[in-house]
């Protein structure tokens, strides 16, 4: 889905980051992210690839939006939860 999911980088090894999504850790590739990223940064994940680094000043608002979306059981929330539940993309 085009919304993607937001997570925080916990570790980086080459072009693969370990990203924390609300307690679930997954591998995310960094081949196409728009800016250099480091541990602690938040990124937008789309099909296992980070497509954008979330600027610091927007992290709070972005997380609040996602938490609100996830806080229901409708289609959008199910989609997001399914994304969080899927397995790691190969590193």
């Amino acid at each position: 889905m085009c919304l993607g999911v937001v997570g925080q980088i916990a570790a980086i090894e080459g072009l693969v980051a370990t990203v924390d999504f609300w307690g679930t850790r997954k591998k995310v590739r960094l081949d196409i992210v728009d800016e250099p990223v480091q541990v602690g940064d938040y990124i937008l994940n789309h099909v296992g690839f980070a497509i954008r680094r979330i600027p610091h000043e927007e992290v709070e608002e972005t997380l609040a939006f996602y938490e609100e979306l996830l806080g229901a059981s409708d289609l959008l929330a199910r989609d997001l939860r399914a994304e969080l539940a899927t397995s790691d993309p190969g590193g």
Binding site: W22, G23, V59, E60, E68, G71, A72, S73, D74, A77
Partner: peptide, 23 residues
């Protein structure tokens, strides 16, 4: 800014989505 990962997913009742919860 909150630097620590948020550990848990929020839970909310179903009908919450029906309300326009604007920021």
């Amino acid at each position: 800014m909150d630097a620590t990962p948020r550990a848990r997913l929020p839970a909310a009742p179903d009908d919450e989505a029906k309300k326009l919860r604007f920021r």
